[in-house]
């Protein structure tokens, strides 16, 4: 479904160029549930942004469903079936949670059939009550609330490939347990759907079909959680 070929991303002027992603290769299959982990600054968010089109690759290719999307913009990629929940979701003055969910669910087949009740269901799925639908997506929301809304907006896309960037941030462990179930259900609803979650959460890592560990802009290790997790724990301790 998603192929990343020799992908590099560098920033800064020629003299002081720093390489954030270095010749990365990656292949994600339909139906796969992949967790990307690795230390802060290893390039996880950058990889996600390059996939969604928020950043432009320095070199390399991104192929989605056999189509080269390297030069496509964010909107085109969204319409082709890629969704992304930001690590740091932005605020919007005057835009309500419902507005945001409505935009997410518009223009494609979604599970939101009857809007009123289903927006309610959707917001409840991420652990917030109905009253949040009328709230503005602004700085009166806590970090955790904003993250939940962000997760809901990505789910509402009902996309073929959905990437969540550190969905656990600002959310307590107990609630996160429930979110793990939400992700699993979301994937199970469409067996062809691929799920990529950037996370440090053991709970989530254990559920994955495959773990990819990024370090210094390269894949340090990759494989089934049973194989990779022990190495990770060793390295961490």
């Amino acid at each position: 479904m998603l192929q990343v070929k020799n992908l590099s991303f560098s920033v800064g002027p020629a003299r002081k160029r720093s390489t954030i992603l270095n010749n990365l290769n990656l292949n994600i299959k339909p139906g796969e549930f992949v967790v990307i982990t690795g230390p802060n600054g290893s390039g996880k968010s950058t990889l996600a942004k390059l996939t969604m089109g928020l950043e432009k690759a320095t070199s390399g290719q991104i192929i989605f469903n056999n189509q080269d999307i390297t030069d496509k913009n964010i909107t085109e990629r969204a319409k082709l079936g890629i969704a992304f929940a930001f690590q740091q979701p932005p605020h919007f003055k005057g835009v309500t949670v419902k507005d945001l969910l409505q935009i997410s669910a518009t223009g494609h087949e979604t599970f939101l059939e009857d809007s009123e009740t289903d927006y309610k269901k959707l917001i409840e799925t991420v652990g917030l009550d109905e009253s949040y639908l009328e709230r503005e997506v602004n700085n009166t929301l806590s970090g955790g609330e904003l993250k939940r809304i962000e997760i809901a907006s990505a789910i509402a896309r009902n996309a073929q490939l959905t990437i969540f960037d550190e969905p656990e941030a600002g959310i307590d462990i107990w609630s996160f347990e429930k979110l793990v179930q939400v992700f699993k259900k979301f994937r199970d609803k469409a067996p062809e759907r691929a799920l990529v979650i950037i996370s440090h959460q053991q709970r989530l890592i254990k559920q994955a079909d495959r773990i990819i560990v990024l370090e210094n802009g390269q894949i340090a290790s990759e494989g089934h959680p049973d194989d990779v997790l022990p190495q990770l724990q060793e390295a961490g301790s």
Binding site: M52, L54, N73, I74, T75, R77, A78, K79, A83, F84, F86, Q88, P89, P90, H91, F92, K93, G94, V95, D99, L100, I103, S104, T106, G107, H108, S153, R157
Partner: peptide, 28 residues
């Protein structure tokens, strides 16, 4: 803010649609 545009475009809006959504909300 470019993050606002990025976010709405990632939900399928074109840049023009995203701008008018942000402005309409702002002046609502």
């Amino acid at each position: 803010a470019s993050e606002q545009l990025d976010k709405l475009m990632s939900l399928g809006l074109t840049q023009i649609q995203a701008e008018s959504q942000i402005i309409n909300g702002f002046l609502k």
